[in-house]
């Protein structure tokens, strides 16, 4: 899983069916001290994390297929945890 900080969001009206109605957040992978450790990535966010919140992102596609309800969904990044302290 990836520890990341939410730095922005994106909207898309023309997308894969499994993305319809989902919130897309743009995150930067960070280490425990909050320093950026990689290129930004986009993820689904069913939990509604706030700006600059530190979150856990899964990269397991089969988990995302169950939560979006589409078994042919190619999405693999999804926020599954909000970090209180690291």
């Amino acid at each position: 899983m990836i520890l990341a900080r939410i730095d922005g969001h994106a909207t898309s009206s023309f997308c894969d069916p499994s993305l319809k109605g989902q919130t897309i957040v743009l995150c930067t992978p960070v280490d425990e001290k909050g320093r950026s450790t990689g290129a930004p990535l986009a993820a689904l966010d069913p939990l509604g994390a706030g700006r600059h919140a530190v979150v856990f992102i899964t990269t397991d596609g089969s988990f995302t297929q169950k939560t979006t309800g589409h078994d042919d969904s190619p999405i693999r990044n999804e926020v599954i945890g909000l970090v209180d302290a690291s």
Binding site: R5, G8, H9, A10, T11, S12, S13, L26, P40, R51
Partner: peptide, 15 residues
């Protein structure tokens, strides 16, 4: 590699 979304708008402001 497959395209899954065409972005309308996006915002990105790291601290």
């Amino acid at each position: 590699a497959i395209n899954v979304a065409l972005l309308d708008t996006f915002q990105f402001q790291p601290p």
